[in-house]
Design a protein around this nucleic acid. Structure first.
Length: 781
DNA sequence: CAGTGAGCGAGCTTCCGCTTGACTT
């Protein structure tokens, strides 16, 4: 009989702990929750005090029976799931499902995985905290009520298979509102004046900027004119020490942000790479909201700093979590062995590890000390001053290791420059002054990482859900991650030099964006609808408010079903009322005007397959009259499309002309705009559209496609007409009975293959079960 | 991953948090 069974949440953790505890302890993992509300049903009994109906998901059945057998076989079962709401609930579900007994069950917690912490935990067991469990049940039930009562309303009023929830709907709201701010943004111009002065030595240049921006061109002109006759004198030199402190160690969200800025990883990429580092035992757990470092980690980090940089560079620091609703079940993300500077692994893994290691080291290092010098230049007859600032690093401190990035890298011009030696009352000679028209910047669109940061600030979502939430709002097509083309803008420059004042004009690109989150029509319509009726849930403070209630439940001050009841009494009537509203028109529908041809109204709305324009309505009384539909083009929006643009869409499919005696037709299909000619299809590239494409352009596309097709075909066999060897985007392949088979790069020359060769490859491929998308990575080292 | 090329009244969809699933030998 096994003496002790310990159950933790993660298998990697189980492995580590087993080493610490020795052979009297068997450590297994629950792989997270083992029981949840049924997936397909509401599973909350409203009539009976919101009793949840739990089930063990199919993919957990085997694991649960294994755990059950092992627990029956153990003298003592130690429930060691995380020390937070979810962790407590996991322990409780285990207790219930495994049929454990109080006298042979202990609940233990530790928030760092070190031998001392674990041994201490074993010595100080407690029992399951039902208040904390109930706080989790309240959280779970509330999320289910919101999600499963709101989503069906969207199916009826907007489009099937949509979803809404406490977290995702607010994430979409942030993006929609930011886009509106951008639309409404009016940039203001002002003139920024810079000058190059010659110092009394006759050669050294001092660059300075006017301490005020000038509102108009006239003002800038007048100022430069005044400068022509002015004298310039240094009237103040000030030196000020500046200290900079390192950033705290990584949590999930800050890791995601820095990896995005410094390494260009998406949020989910970062998490996948971090997961591998964790599984290899190289870093601590990657889903955490805690800044805490274990004493062991603090100690080894100190040693590493003393050894590599010396005493002067070390400073003990402890960081305290600031984010709302943080549960601090784990440590911050750090290397398990800080002394390990290099790891084996892919380039991505090495880079992320290096980032984590440097950040961890830097957070225990001394402040950087800088000296900021400000030189002020007086302009005779003017109240403005020219100002030059320079920054010199006196002591680099943590900067030697790590420099945190910022999101707006545009304002990099100032600072970091060494200024020339100057003296008070030095008279300067103006070499050149330039007034450049600058515009205020619109707010930035969210990236995945900045959205995560905003959600965390609002206390919405958890480290384990940031990446999945971003995936969900894109899967539902509420939001797309994409690029936006910029527009050209002209700006004026006034230059004053020996020759006097000249005016010139330049252009710059503005508003271009890459890889940013933008709302779709569906996202906007759903958001506006939810904002109109469900302010309650859409409120940025909703999560923070309910978190307070959950905390009260956890403290034993509130009954969880009472909290849910209070919410339901307000929420459910709105669901009822909203469902009862019978509207003539769909949510988000907009009438553009009247079709001059038929005299019928023209609408745009969200249709079964996304945004569409529609002329007329179905009318069963009138001969079963059917409306006409046309899909909106990419880049068009139901918010902004005009009647004229919409009517153009109905000209599709459109006959473009004739080529080789056959008609050329342009239309939009399931996969975007295309050209049809002689029974063949050619996709229309992004930079053209089916409404405006000319016959010449279409012919060119047809010819390109023919050339490609010719290149595509490699070989065919008479005996087996269904089999073809073709050239694809990813090299030669075999097409056979609707399936494609890759030809290995080595061992075959496609053009010389026999039918037997082909059949052999097909057989081999078919014998393997459905192809795995996962890439094996261990071999790459 | 490879080509595909409607139609808007028939078919089930959905939440948020925990955690990694593995075909054979």
């Amino acid at each position: 009989m096994q003496k002790n069974l310990v159950i933790v949440e993660s298998p990697a953790k189980a492995k580590t702990i087993e080493k610490f505890l020795g052979k009297d302890y068997k450590v297994l993992s629950s792989y997270g929750h083992i029981r949840d509300l049924k997936t397909k049903q509401f599973s909350i009994d409203i009539e009976h005090n919101y009793a949840p109906q739990y089930e063990i998901p199919a993919d957990k059945k085997k694991l649960v029976s294994e755990l059950k057998a092992e627990s029956k076989n153990a003298e003592m079962v130690w429930l060691a799931s995380d020390e937070d709401r979810e962790g407590e609930a996991i322990s409780w579900h285990l207790y219930e499902v495994l049929g454990l007994k109080p006298e042979t069950t202990r609940r233990i917690v530790f928030h760092e995985i070190t031998k001392t912490a674990i041994l201490h935990a074993i010595e100080t067991p407690r029992s399951i905290d039902m208040n904390l469990v109930n706080a989790q049940q309240a959280r779970r039930v509330l999320d289910r009520i919101v999600g499963f009562q709101l989503s069906p309303i969207l199916w009826r009023k907007v489009k099937p298979a949509l979803s809404a929830g406490r977290v995702q709907s607010v994430a979409v709201r942030l993006i929609v509102e930011r886009e509106r701010e951008i639309q409404d943004f009016v940039s203001e111009a002002a003139y920024r004046v810079t000058a190059n002065f010659i110092l009394p030595d006759g050669k050294t240049i001092l660059k300075a900027e006017l301490n005020r921006r000038l509102k108009t061109k006239e003002e800038a002109q007048a100022f430069l004119e005044a400068c022509q006759h002015a004298t310039f004198t240094i009237d103040d030199i000030s030196k000020k020490p500046v200290r900079k402190s390192p950033a705290p160690p990584f949590t999930t969200s800050t890791l995601q942000q820095e990896a995005a800025r410094k390494l260009g990883y998406s949020v989910s990429q970062t998490m996948m790479i971090a997961q591998r580092l964790y599984e290899s035992g190289l870093i601590t757990y990657m889903r955490t909201d805690s800044f805490n470092l274990s004493d062991l980690a603090l100690g080894t980090t100190k040693e590493a700093i003393l050894e590599s940089y010396g005493e002067k560079y070390y400073k003990f620091r402890q960081y305290h979590t600031k984010s709302k609703g943080a549960q601090e079940a784990h440590e911050a993300i750090r290397p398990t062995y800080i002394a390990k500077a290099e790891i084996d692994g892919t380039a991505q893994e090495r880079k992320l590890y290096d980032l984590i290691r440097k950040r961890t080291i830097a957070c225990q290092m001394a402040d950087a000390e800088l000296e900021r010098t400000t030189i002020s230049v007086d302009i005779s007859g003017q109240k403005e001053k020219f100002v030059a600032t320079g920054e010199v690093v006196v002591f680099d401190g943590f900067l030697q290791v790590y420099h945190e990035s910022t999101d707006d890298d545009q304002e990099k011009e100032q600072g970091n420059t060494l200024l020339p030696a100057v003296h008070l009352q030095d008279a300067l000679q103006l070499k050149e002054a330039t007034a450049t028209e600058r515009f205020t910047q619109r707010p930035p669109r969210y990236t995945e990482a900045t959205l995560v940061r905003r959600l965390e600030e609002l206390g919405i979502g958890r480290p384990s859900t940031y990446a999945p939430t971003i995936q969900t709002i894109q899967n539902r097509e509420y939001v797309v991650k994409g690029d936006k083309e910029g527009t050209e803008r002209a700006f004026t420059i006034l230059t004053l030099n020996k020759k006097g004042i000249q005016e010139s004009s330049k252009t710059e690109m503005v508003g271009a964006d890459r890889n940013k989150l933008m709302p779709t029509d569906i996202g906007i319509v759903v958001n506006d609808f939810l904002m109109e009726y469900f302010q309650l849930v859409m409120d940025y403070n909703f999560t923070a408010k309910v978190e307070k209630e959950f905390d009260a439940i956890a403290e034993g001050e509130e009954n969880w079903t009472k909290v849910i009841d209070n919410f339901y009494k307000v929420f459910h009537p709105i669901v009822e009322q909203t469902s009862a509203i019978r509207t003539e028109h769909k949510v988000g529908e907009r009438q553009l005007g009247i079709d001059p041809k038929s005299g019928k109204p023209v609408f745009v709305k969200i249709g079964r397959f996304g945004p569409v324009a529609q002329i007329g309505e179905s009318n069963p009384d009138k001969d079963n009259e059917k409306p006409q539909f046309a899909t909106l083009l990419k880049g068009q929006s139901i918010e902004t499309i005009t009647l004229e643009e919409a009517l153009k869409l109905f000209e599709l499919p459109r006959t473009v002309g004739e080529y080789e005696g056959k008609v050329v037709v342009a239309a939009i299909g399931r996969f975007g705009p295309f050209i049809r000619h002689d029974g063949k299809f050619v996709s229309i590239p992004k930079d053209k559209n089916p409404i405006s494409i000319t016959l010449d352009e279409a012919i060119e596309l047809i010819q390109q496609k023919r050339a490609k097709d010719e290149n595509r075909f490699i070989k065919k066999f008479e005996e087996e007409p269904e089999l073809e060897i073709l050239n694809g985007r990813y090299g030669p392949y075999i097409a056979y009975k609707g399936k494609n088979y890759r030809i290995p790069k080595t061992g075959y020359t496609p053009a010389e293959m026999t039918l037997d060769d082909c059949m052999k490859l097909i057989k081999e491929a078919d014998q393997k079960p459905a192809t795995k998308k996962r890439v094996t990575r261990k071999k790459a080292e």
